[in-house]
Structures are given as C-alpha cells and as structure tokens.
Design a protein around this nucleic acid. Sequence first.
DNA 1: CTCTCATATTCATATATTTGAATATGTTAA
DNA 2: TTAACATATTCAAATATATGAATATGAGAG
Lengths: 119, 119
Amino acid sequence: MNTDIFKALSDESRLRILNLLFRRELCVCELESILDMSQTNVSRHLNKLKYANMVLMTKKSKWAYYSINDQFIKENDHLIAYLKNNFSEDKDFVRDMKILISLEEDQALCSDSNIVKFV
Amino acid sequence: MNTDIFKALSDESRLRILNLLFRRELCVCELESILDMSQTNVSRHLNKLKYANMVLMTKKSKWAYYSINDQFIKENDHLIAYLKNNFSEDKDFVRDMKILISLEEDQALCSDSNIVKFV
DNA sequence: CTCTCATATTCATATATTTGAATATGTTAA
DNA sequence: TTAACATATTCAAATATATGAATATGAGAG
C-alpha cells in the first residue's frame, strides 16, 4: 500500500492548506497571507500535495491557483470524511477558515480584483 | 490537528502490522514470522503504533500481545473504513492475511500452545 | 541456579524531511 | 525596457526517521 498520501498528511501546514482548499481554490499568495507562512514554504507544501495527487494547479496570468483534485476526493471518500470531520473540530483550523471567509466577504481575494491585495 | 496518526501510518511495515491486528491480537514473534521482519524492527514499529494510541499491549508470561485499541476504532471510524478498504485491495496485504489465516488453521500460533513455534 | 526464549533498548549510521535565505523564471504594469 | 510582483527552485543546515547489530531485561524450563 502506498504511503505517499499519509506522508503528505503528516504535516500540520499541509493539513491547514487542505482545510482551506476544501472551501475553494486559492493562489499561493492568498495561502501565504491567511496562514502567515513564507512564500517558499507554501509553495513547497503545495508541491508535495500536488505530487501526492491531492491538489491540482492551474496558472492564471501571474497567479498559480491550487485546488483539491476531484478525482482524489472520489477515490478516497472515507479519508476525506475523516479529514473534514477533524478539521471542523480543530479550533486552529476553524480560525483559518474564518479568516478566509472574511476575505471573501470583503472581496479581498486575488480573483476579486486586478489589484494585488496581498503583500 | 495532531499529525501523530498520519505519521504512524506513513510506513509500509506499520500498515502491514495494522492489517494483521485488525483480524486478531498477535505477539511480536508471530508478526516477526508472518512479515519476515527482524524482532527489533517489529518491536520498534509496534511501539510507535502504541505511542499513537492505535494499539494496546498486554503481557502474557513471556509474550507481549498487541491488539488494536478499541477506543481508537470508535473515535476514528472513517479512517478505519479507509484503511480496511485499502488493505483489502492490496495484494501484499492480502497475502499477509492469508499467511495468518493458514497459521490459525494449523493452530500454529503462540496462543495455541506452550511450545514455541516461531524461531 | 543456569540456560533459553521473547522482547525492549541502545548505539551508530544512513536516509528523509523541514525550513530560511538567496536566487531564478516568467508576467504585468508603467 | 525597466521595475514590481508571483512563484518555483537551489543551497545549506537542522531535525526527524529508519534500521542493523549488539546488548539488556525478565520470564519460564530444566
């Protein structure tokens, strides 16, 4: 049995990223801002999730947007249920989600504008 | 969210051990024999699973018997379903299970006898 | 009491993972 | 074309993990 998925899930930062991506696709700089992590690190963790086939990347002009791979969701429904369940019970993850939702409400995501809101 | 469980699952040997323990409790030397691994290594991996609260250990005279922690099963039902599903679809894991079942049929497990059958 | 067996632990080493800092690449705007 | 920006990659160092070999511990058999 392949352990790549479990290795990908063995890091708090990557779990926090997945939690947010379950809600919507996000670019690197948005994750960087919400999670208060370095650009280098966000990029690296996303790359690992991509390698494990858990997320997909698509380029939109300057931005690299990452999203949950639907195929991964379909093929791993029990695991997804487990993750979503645990995410919703963890206060740090709920806090991350609240930050994302408030950015949506303020229309402060990169996709809302050509103006770069994250520095 | 705690990554200890995913770290414990990030190793093929530990997954093979869990697969067998889902069927029944086993002592170290039985796992050593079925999995063809060194005693040192089986013991170490079991210790990690115990640390992650996934298995329990009980001493019976010379033998240390390990079993799945029922509390862990109850608290992580989706994850357990995911694991059992994947175990049953992996030919190496099915082979391990067949070896265990044939030992049961031959009454060749430590619990079947005072005579040590595994060397 | 001594030997053998089952298991855990220690030691040393190889390998993998994480991360900050610096740099490279490619895109957009002025 | 030049500057600012978004992202990926490289380099180096720190930390974690895996494992063989040797040894320690403790129980039961003779």
